[in-house]
């Protein structure tokens, strides 16, 4: 489904460049549930942003279902993301001024979908995630777990084949975290490819494959036990 080849990403700093991703090579198959782990600053979120096509300052090659992302223009990448990718954030990132229903509808509102169809999709999602009773409430009226539920509903409303989750349970207590992870497992079993970033071994256990990042390098992959840690190259 996804193939990354020699993906590199750096940021300009006063002293030169800080590398956050170094020559990352990664193949993601349709239906996988991948967990990205590593210490803080390892480049997990940066990798997720590259996969989400939110970042376009990287170098290297990126194929998404045979499409050469690295050759696409910004607008085409944005279109590709809109159709294929859903995002779940640690801080939920719900819009405070919109109701649950309106938040879920948000990704659909950026597509050419007729209003009645959007309404029925939202109603389905509310039903599926059992939050119909909350549809008129604002995020501030929900618990953290409920907010993340809404975040996931919003991420999958347009049925994306790829769901990216950046520490989706980071702000939740263990009970709520478990519910969310089970939801992810269900989604994965229904065919959604999932890439999650987490620090939690328990959450990782829900996945089918775990990759390890350190200082921007891909240093471990359960699907490729032969992967060894490369030599550190100083920043230039």
């Amino acid at each position: 489904m996804i193939q990354l080849k020699n993906i590199e990403r750096n940021y300009k700093t006063g002293a030169g460049f800080t590398w956050v991703l170094r020559r990352v090579n990664l193949d993601i198959q349709q239906g996988e549930f991948i967990t990205v782990m590593g210490p803080s600053g390892a480049g997990k979120s940066s990798l997720l942003n590259v996969l989400a096509l939110l970042d376009d300052q990287w170098k290297g090659e990126y194929w998404f279902r045979e499409q050469t992302v690295h050759d696409l223009k910004r607008k085409q990448r944005s279109e590709l993301a809109k159709r294929n990718i859903g995002m779940v954030f640690q801080s939920y990132h719900l819009l405070d001024d919109l109701t649950v229903e309106e938040n879920i509808d948000l990704p659909l509102s950026y597509k050419d979908i007729p209003r009645h169809q959007r309404q029925s999709l939202v109603a389905d999602a509310l039903d599926r995630f059992q939050i119909v009773a909350k549809k008129g409430l604002y995020p501030s009226q929900l618990s953290g777990g409920q907010q993340q539920l809404v975040g996931i509903a919003r991420a999958v409303i347009h049925k994306p084949p790829l769901l990216l989750a950046d520490e989706p349970t980071g702000n939740l207590h263990s009970g709520q975290a478990k519910e969310i992870m089970e939801l992810f497992r269900d989604l994965n079993q229904q065919g959604t490819t999932i890439v999650q970033v987490t620090h939690s071994e328990a959450n990782a256990a829900y996945g089918s494959r775990t990759i390890q990042l350190r200082d921007g390098w891909l240093v471990g992959d359960t699907a490729n036990p032969a992967l060894t840690q490369p030599t550190e190259v100083s920043a230039s």
Partner: peptide, 11 residues
Amino acid sequence: ELGIRMALGAD
């Protein structure tokens, strides 16, 4: 908010 909207597909 605008960042979220853009992340969710707003051009």
